[in-house]
């Protein structure tokens, strides 16, 4: 079993002639907050879909939460959580119904669901809204709820796909505090974002360019390696080599 939460070797995905992800080799340690960055079309989504067991690799291998993504994708999906800005909760169900539904899907008992609902709503201060339709609660709370629900089955790793898109700057920062709490409790976090200031909050990060990893390390390491003062500058240099 891999000592890492995520470990990939030469992970590659082709669509016909097009190589969407090329020879991805990296690892993420337990409890780490790992930023997964890249321009639109750089291959982040394809790579993420492979890592969560939804898309088979064309070549290479990856272990996620200790399971092989190609031969054991079912076990991978049981041991991870996933949240995206675009979809994670059912708007027409109440807060409680969403939690119960997810708990049921992941095979939790009624007693477990009741106990974890209580703890979860207490932590994010949403107990009063238990019977509200999700559609009616503010976006900031919805996002904290979505993350908490993605963590309901106590996964070893949670994948966050642009979790803070469109939210106000205060809610965005509160959400990151929740990310830190999650990692401090031992859950590994892999997060994508278009906010480069948020990339600075990661323990380590990678920047994908045209399907391959072009830079990887702690924010400080990659800035030193490329001789830049900000991740914004590095992102520009890597994604538009002529323009920098």
């Amino acid at each position: 079993m891999s000592a890492f939460a995520i470990e990939t070797h030469g992970l590659t995905r082709r669509f016909g002639e097009f190589v969407a992800v090329r020879d991805l080799t990296f690892h993420v340690a337990q409890g780490e907050v790992f930023g997964f960055l890249g321009a639109n079309g750089a291959g982040k989504t394809t790579a993420m879909r492979m890592l969560i067991g939804l898309l088979e690799p064309s070549d290479g291998s990856a272990q996620v939460a200790g399971y092989d993504i190609a031969t054991d994708s079912e076990a991978v999906r049981r041991n991870i959580g996933y949240m995206s800005q675009k979809f994670s909760l059912y708007d027409d169900l109440t807060v409680q119904e969403n939690i119960t539904l997810y708990g049921g899907i992941y095979g939790l008992s009624n007693a477990q669901i009741a106990e974890r609902t209580h703890a979860l709503l207490g932590r994010i201060g949403l107990e009063h809204a238990r019977k509200e339709l999700v559609r009616r609660i503010p976006l900031g709370w919805k996002q904290q709820l979505a993350l908490s629900v993605a963590l309901l089955h106590e996964p070893k790793i949670v994948f966050l796909d642009e979790p803070t898109g469109g939210v106000d700057p205060i809610t965005r920062r509160r959400f990151w505090e929740l990310i830190y709490e999650t990692a401090a409790a031992g859950t590994t976090v892999l997060v994508t974002t278009h906010y480069l200031d948020e990339a600075e909050y990661c323990d380590r990060l990678s920047i994908m360019v045209e399907g391959a990893i072009a830079a990887m390390g702690t924010p400080g390491e990659v800035k030193r390696e490329f001789g830049v003062t900000s991740l914004d500058e590095l992102f520009l240099q890597l994604t538009r080599p002529g323009a920098a």
């Binding site: 278009h194 992102f235 994604t239």
Partner: peptide
């Protein structure tokens, strides 16, 4: 520019 990467936004 929502959902667009930092460089394309610029």
């Amino acid at each position: 520019t929502t959902g667009v990467d930092a460089v394309s936004r610029r």
